[in-house]
Design a protein around this nucleic acid. Structure first.
Lengths: 248, 248
DNA sequence: CACTTCTAAGATACTAACATATCAGTCGCC
DNA sequence: GGCGACTGATATGTTAGTATCTTAGAAGTG
């Protein structure tokens, strides 16, 4: 319940601290889509001036997490389901190729061991109902795959514009508590890699990345106020309505 | 020879103008890799204050075109060949899938016509030795493909982190004047699309995107001062040496 | 001469104040 | 009552100046 203006630590760069704090709380759903943010307000709460806040806003806008309307206001982005789908598509295009690469090259025992270790980390996160820890080890699992193929930067490209995707994943995990399924999918992918069974590895990866969209149909109704609508008037509606903050 | 502080127009957003001006001149090679930029200096030349310059710097850093060293200085990024290679890899993963999609779905005559029109635009650019115009229509050609498949955002993701790739392409075109080859490749891809010949379309796409790396071997020697070195001391060397500006 | 310390210039990081645009609500006119 | 102009509050956009950090080079020391 520590709200988004914690400021317990600010060693390097105030701008960076603001950025990290806001980013975490948006992905956490402590700051809900559509919520209005104000440079002045946040600067005041954090006892800093507006400029670092403003710069953090700009960075977050670049990741699609904030929408800055010039001279009007800044809002936490609504969930753009079309964008999330295209992130998934892009990611699948790249990651399936990386997975094939990994399997077709000589199996890298060190990487396989590291990935197994991450699965154990995930198990622990499940036991502790630690959504954040689970999400971190999920990312680390996939990242390992890219690193093993010398595609670290390709991962960081994907990671960079996956912010909205991650926000949906967080919601999905919180609501369906399907941690175990994700873990099973990881196990299946890894096991197929060990067997050098490319077909099955790709099948499981596809299922793994697609699942979030399958679930999104269920989420769509329940969380429709947080989802961006097309075809309606773009400048009003849900984005402007005050939304209960349930956390501050 | 109009240098990078032109300021002929500044209708909306000073920050945006600074951003666009700097971005153009970096991709143009009017601002060379390794060159030092100063907030104060640019602000002074443009008769504006430092903040908009600073914000433009941050955006350009996000695209990998600038390197901001806190409290030290801001430099035009050196060419990071490994990053460019991974951009190419990522792009090929996505674009080959999009191309397959385009061919396997019913052929979209409107799109094919539009792409043919773009080829004519390219021909004109070649006739006029207009590198910028050529590059623009090159991008437009590929973008059309993504739009036709409903993957506009996927294109914008790729486009966003392709800045360094584009800079290398500009150099390659200026030095090898192989406009015609690029045009031929586009024609081959389009013609394969018309014949719904997926294999050949993909082969030509692969050749098209790979070419830049083949050429980069030749460029590596001639332009080595502009290329990022790994394994050396990261905090000194070429990046700091004053480099002839040949334009301002 | 080799090495350390000091210093001043100049870079980004940040602050505080001002400029400009937007919008909801109100006033006044019909 | 209905409708358009005005206005105050407040948002971001921009400016100018201050603070802090880094570094090159001078000065001092063995």
């Amino acid at each position: 319940m520590l709200s988004f203006f914690d400021m317990s630590e600010l060693k390097d760069g105030v701008t960076r601290q603001v950025y990290l704090t806001l980013r975490r709380d948006i992905l956490n759903w402590r700051l809900l889509p559509g919520r209005r943010l104000s440079e002045k307000d946040i600067a005041g709460r954090m006892n800093i001036s507006k400029t670092p806040v403003r710069e953090a806003f700009i960075k977050l806008q670049g990741e699609g997490l904030l929408e800055i309307r010039p001279q009007r206001g800044t809002y936490v982005s609504l969930m753009d389901m079309e964008q999330i789908e295209e992130v998934r598509f892009t990611r699948y295009c790249v990651e399936s190729t990386v997975l094939s690469l990994f399997i077709s090259s000589p199996p890298d025992e060190k990487t396989l061991t590291a990935m197994e270790a991450l699965l154990e980390t995930q198990e622990q996160a499940i036991a502790g109902r630690d959504v954040d820890g689970f999400v971190d080890s999920d990312d680390a699992f996939h990242r390992e795959l890219f690193l093993a193929c010398g595609k670290a930067r390709a991962w960081s490209f994907i990671d960079h514009f996956s912010a909205q995707y991650k926000r949906l994943r967080y919601l999905s995990l919180q609501n369906y508590l399907d941690f175990g399924n994700v873990l099973d999918e990881h196990r299946a992918i890894l096991s197929a890699c060990r067997r050098r069974d490319s077909d099955n590895a790709l099948r499981w990866l596809s299922r793994h990345l697609n699942k979030i969209l399958g679930e999104s149909e269920h989420l769509r109704e329940k969380f429709s106020v947080y989802i961006k609508k097309y075809g309606e008037i773009q400048d009003s509606g849900a984005a402007h309505t005050p939304i209960p903050t349930h956390g501050a």
